Simulated scan of single mutants.
Amino acid sequence: MKAADVARRLATPLTAPAYPASRTRFRDREYLNIVYRTDPDALRAVVPEPLEIEEPLVRFEIMRMNQASNYGPYTEAGQVIPVRFGAERGEYLHQMYLDSFAATAAGRELAAYPKSMGSPALFAEHGALVGTLDLGSQRVATATMGYQHRPLDFERARAEIAVPTYMLKIVPGYDGKPRICELARTQITDLTIKDAWTGPARLQLFEHVLAPLADLPVREIVSASHIITDLTLAPLRPVHDYLEGNRS
């Protein structure tokens, strides 16, 4: 393979890349969102400057990708933290766990999503919408919500899903020091809300050293939603360089 051809590739293995280069369109993407109040000191310990916290809130989410071009169906779970960047309010992606290696690798390499492998699930059972997250044989989170108890206004659902999103892009160099260390921003585009509900909810988080969701403990459930959408993820752009002025 010629050097010019190598330079055009985005992923390895060179002849069988882990993911395609094209953008992904999500259809019938299903969310279970539970917003809860947590410990303010614990939250401040994990949110990086220059992001700021206004309220000690966390959104636990489980997303079932029923139709994802390039990857097929998979499920994802994690924690999202409401933040402010300057005058803009958005969310910081704290940690995410997927059951698809291709989507995990693409999210980390092509973008900056803090993705790791796990075993999330989203299903209906005995009148409840149930979301779980396991790491290996160990339960990390269990979320339940009354199944389609009350309709949720579509504009409220849109506001919940389409906020600006911030995440860290960290790429190490061969010397063991950061080669890239940036805060990046994206926002969902081409969003269609297809159904949305709210209702009573509960959330349990269990201690695990490699999936430390319980480090942001549940103090009070604030709200819950069950939303079905079609959407596209926009490309990211850097908004803050942590290495600027510190490169040798």
Rank of each mutant, 00 (worst) to 15 (best):
M1S: 14
M1F: 09
K2D: 12
A7I: 06
R9A: 10
L10N: 14
T12Y: 14
T12W: 15
L14A: 12
P17T: 02
A18H: 10
R23T: 14
R25S: 13
R27C: 08
R29T: 10
L32R: 06
I34Y: 04
D39S: 05
A42C: 01
L43H: 05
A45E: 04
V46K: 00
V47Q: 02
P48N: 03
L51P: 02
I53G: 07
I53Q: 00
E54C: 07
E55M: 07
L57T: 01
R59V: 12
E61W: 12
M65E: 13
A68N: 06
S69Y: 09
N70K: 09
P73E: 07
A77K: 04
I81C: 03
I81V: 09
V83H: 03
F85T: 01
G86Y: 01
E88N: 09
G90C: 01
L93P: 07
Q95W: 06
M96Y: 10
L98Y: 00
S100Q: 04
S100N: 04
A102P: 07
A105W: 05
G107K: 04
E109W: 00
L110H: 13
A112D: 05
Y113D: 11
L122G: 07
F123A: 10
A128T: 15
A128H: 15
V130C: 09
T132V: 08
D134Y: 14
D134M: 13
R139Y: 08
V140C: 07
A141V: 01
A143F: 02
P151R: 08
L152I: 01
E155L: 11
E155G: 10
E155Y: 11
E155P: 00
R156F: 12
A157S: 06
A159D: 14
A162T: 09
A162F: 06
V163M: 14
V163I: 11
M167I: 06
M167S: 11
K169M: 05
I170S: 08
V171I: 11
G173F: 01
R179T: 12
R179A: 11
A184E: 15
R185Q: 11
R185E: 09
T186P: 06
I188W: 10
T192S: 15
K194I: 00
D195T: 08
P200Q: 13
A201P: 08
R202L: 11
R202I: 02
Q204A: 15
F206T: 00
E207A: 13
H208R: 02
H208D: 05
V209M: 12
L210V: 12
P217N: 01
I221Q: 03
H226L: 10
I227P: 04
I228H: 03
T229R: 05
D230A: 00
T232F: 11
L233D: 13
P238Y: 08
V239A: 03
Y242H: 08
E244N: 13
E244P: 00
N246Y: 15
